[in-house]
Design a protein around this nucleic acid. Structure first.
Lengths: 164, 164
DNA sequence: TAAGGATCCATTGACGCCCATAAAATTCCA
DNA sequence: TGGAATTTTATGGGCGTCAATGGATCCTTA
């Protein structure tokens, strides 16, 4: 497995710790998220959602790439740099695969009792469970609108809508 | 055999396991659904039916392809990612060719005692048996009506029409 | 020394893996 | 071609391992 897939909801314990889903940890390890023996993930507030973005080296490189596409000293670059790098936290993963979400991040995502990890391929997000459900519904509607992309090139499958 | 065909109904046992039809497993193996020694299928709620869509690598690639066409960090991409990756579950297949359907998927499809596997070529669906029967009837009726319109196969019966 | 982290340990419940059995399909041979 | 032998499938159950979670101990630092 080499991408973050599926959603998992885990509890936050009394000390603020929460387990990163085992399958995500596996992806992170392949991704080389650990430099030396420091195991950590990059985590920052999502720009346009009440959630957190997180990932390993691949995510970091992507951000780098995004910024390097913009001219030095441009306002745009400065702003984006601040937005992207400014709030990044490196969260260490303990021996049992758990992280601690700092206050700032918890506030942004509005989480308390438990959190939902959402795989998005290159990265994953951390949501307050109920809030994520709403979001998921929205997303499904959107996909509906894009459905024709799925069937492109083929005659409309009698399968998908009224199969069998 | 390189596509999913036919329908099969299998039982869900006390532990929530259900056998994937042998012929489907054969297709999956050709499809290279297993990366390394991880054997698993991709499974997610069908967008417009109370059923589950499932498949192997070919299906996964299709999803990837869909997303890779969209610009990074666009709203559109994020939403699609959530709906596509977020809803996807990777179900591992045990040594006896069985999978376990997680709670969320079982709910969406409304299954409990047994399930019907429906081959759709590139992918297959998983249905609650009774529900699938209804669908199938509906589909047959529709096909009949089309036949009448097109006069396919036989010369149109000249007199009797019962459909009103 | 108190507070906060970090590491380690323990419990439990889920899941993966193995084997057993019965039914069905397929092969083999007369 | 018929029927017996063998192989494949579906299904049930036991058991060990691992992930998630809670708690204790040690370590650092203010």
């Amino acid at each position: 497995m080499d991408r973050f897939v599926s959603t998992f909801t885990n509890k936050i314990d009394a000390k603020g710790r929460v387990s990163v889903p085992a399958s995500f940890r596996a992806v992170l390890e392949r991704d080389g998220f650990a430099s030396g023996d420091v195991r950590g993930i990059y985590c920052y507030p999502s720009l346009d959602a009440p959630a957190l973005d997180a990932g390993g080296e691949r995510l970091a490189k992507k951000i780098d790439g995004l910024l390097s596409g913009l001219p030095d000293y441009s306002d745009e670059r400065d702003e984006l740099s601040v937005a992207l790098y400014g709030d990044v936290q490196v969260l260490s993963i303990d021996g049992d695969g758990r992280i601690v979400l700092p206050e700032g991040l918890r506030t942004h995502a509005g989480v308390s009792g438990s959190v939902t990890f959402v795989g998005l391929g290159d990265k994953f997000q951390i949501w307050e469970p109920a809030r994520f459900e709403e979001r998921r519904k929205l997303a499904r509607d959107k996909v509906h609108q894009h459905r024709r992309l799925f069937g492109a090139g083929r005659p409309p499958p009698s399968g998908e809508s009224e199969s069998g």
